[in-house]
Design a protein around this nucleic acid. Sequence first.
RNA 1: GGCCCCGUCGUCUAGCGGCCCAGGACUCUGGCUUCUCAAGUCAGCUACGAGGGUUCGAAUCCCUUCGGGGCUACCA
Length: 490
Amino acid sequence: MTLANSGKKVKVRFAPSPTGDLHVGNIRTALFDWAFARHTGGTFLFRIEDTDTTRVTPEYIQAAIDTLKWLGLSWDEGPEVGGPNGPYLQSQRLDIYATWAQKFLDQGDAYHCYCSPDELEAVREAQRAANVAPGYNGHCRDLTADQVAAYQAEGREAVVRMRMPDGSTTFTDAIRGDVTFDHKFVPDFVLVRADGSPLYTLAVAVDDILMEVTHVLRGEDLLSSTPRQIRVYQAMGVKLEDYPTFAHLPFVMGQDNAKLSKRNGEVSIAWYREQGYLPEAICNYLALLGWSPGDDRENVTMQELTELFTVEKVHSSPARFDMKKLEAINGDKIRALTLDEFFSWSLPFLTKAGTISGNDAEIELVKKALPIIQERLVKLDEVPGLLKFLFVKEFAVDPEAVEKISDSGSKDVLKRSLQVLEPLSSWDHASIEAALRAALIEEMGLKPRIAFTALRIATTGSTISPPLFESMELLGQSTSISRISAALQL
RNA sequence: GGCCCCGUCGUCUAGCGGCCCAGGACUCUGGCUUCUCAAGUCAGCUACGAGGGUUCGAAUCCCUUCGGGGCUACCA
C-alpha cells in the first residue's frame, strides 16, 4: 500500500474520548492535528468519541470543547460550528453505525457471536496457560442455523464480530514507515456490543471515511488497532486511494518513564490554566515534545508553528514531560507580553486571590505596577503575591523578616530615611533613590545591600520584592513613611 | 508470554557516511552584573545502551543483544 490522498485537500481530525479532563498527551495530539491542518491549508475536524457511555460525561465533553478554545486551537468542523458531515458527537450517529454493522452482517464480513464474557475469559485463560497468542478463537465464526437457534433459545445475546481473513495488513505510517501485522495476531474483533451500541473500532473507521478524513494523526497507543480499522474500510468497500494516511505520534511520558498520569505529574490542562500558564507557552512547549523545526529554534508563536510544522519532522520516539522547561518557556512568553496583554491575563488572578476588588483606583495602580514585576515571574499565579504589598489594608511585616530590622543598625537606617523622605517634594523613584543614596550610602557609608534591605522590609514587608524605589513610588509618600515609622516600633 | 513501536547529555532535541574527540535549549554548578528576587551575560558538567559487522571512514547502513513502552476488552 502506498501513501494515499496525495492529491486531495487535507482533512485532519482530533477525536478524543472525553473520559476525563483533556490531558497533556491529548493536547499535544490536538496541537499537531491543528498545526498540520493549518500548515497544509486543510480542514481541522473535531469529533467527540463518546461511544463508551459509561465513562464519557457531558461535563467532560464541554470541558474538552472549552479547553481547545482556550488554547486557540480553532476547528473548522465539529461541535458548535457544525459542518457538512455532522453530527460530530458519535452518540448522535448510532443509526449510521447500526446500518453499517447490518451491512457487514449481510455481506458475511461480520457475524453474530454468542459467547458469553465468562466463556471468552476462560478461552483467554487457557491460551495464556498454553502460551499461545491470546484472542478470540473463532468459536462462532461458522455456526449452523441449528446452533444459532439453540443459543437464542438459551436466551443468549449476541455481539457483532468482524471476520479477519487470513493474511496480513501492511500500511505506511507517515512517521514510522511500513508496519505489518499478521492476522494471526489480529483476532476477530467486536463491532457492536450485545446491547446494540457500537465500539470504537467500528465508529472511528466509519466516521473517518464518511467525514472524508485524509490524515489520522493520533497517539501511538492506537497503532496496533490500525489493521482493524483498515478491515472495516475494506468491508465498507472503500477504495484504497481513499484510505486515510496514518501517522502515529510518540507518547508524552512522565518523569518516571511511564505514560503521563496523575501520579507522575499534573496532566489536566485545567490545572495549568489555574497555575497561570499561558496557552501559547503550553502549545510552544508541547510542540517541542516529539517535534522540532529542524534547527536550533525553540521559541515559536502559534503562527510560526503552523508555518513550520510538518509530519516529516515528527519523531518516532517518546518524549518525557519536563515541567522546568515549560516554566522557562512560560516565563519567556510572559516577558514577551505587551503591557495590555499582561494586564488582561493578570487581572483574573488578582481578583480571584482577593488582592484587589477591581475598582478604578486599584486598576490604575495595577497597571503602573505590572511593568516592574513582569520579568520576575514564571507563572501568572505569582502576580498577587508580588503586588499584595501595594493593596493590603492591614500591613504587617513578614514574621521571618522582623528580626532583620529590629537591630539598632537597621533602626538608624530607617530613622535617617524618614528624615530625608518626609521633606521630599518630588515623589518619584529617581528622586527617592537619589535622596536615600546620598543619606545612607554616601553620608552614613553603608553598603547598599544593607541599607536597602532594611527599607525593603519596612515598606514591602518582605526581603524579596520588586525594585525598591519603584515600589515606594507606587506605594506613595504617606504610606511609605507611615510604614517606615511603624517598622521602628518592631 | 505473543505481536508491534522505540533507544544521542539528567530532560527536550540537532545530526540522515567524512563539516561531530557530537551543536542548541532546559536543569544543575560557578563567575560577572546588581538595592532583594528575577532578568541579562560568561563559563563549566554531562550523551551516540552494548556487541559484532559493512566501509578508507559510522551517532548515521546491516545483524544480534539488552533496555523502555504500547497492545493483547462487549475501553479508547
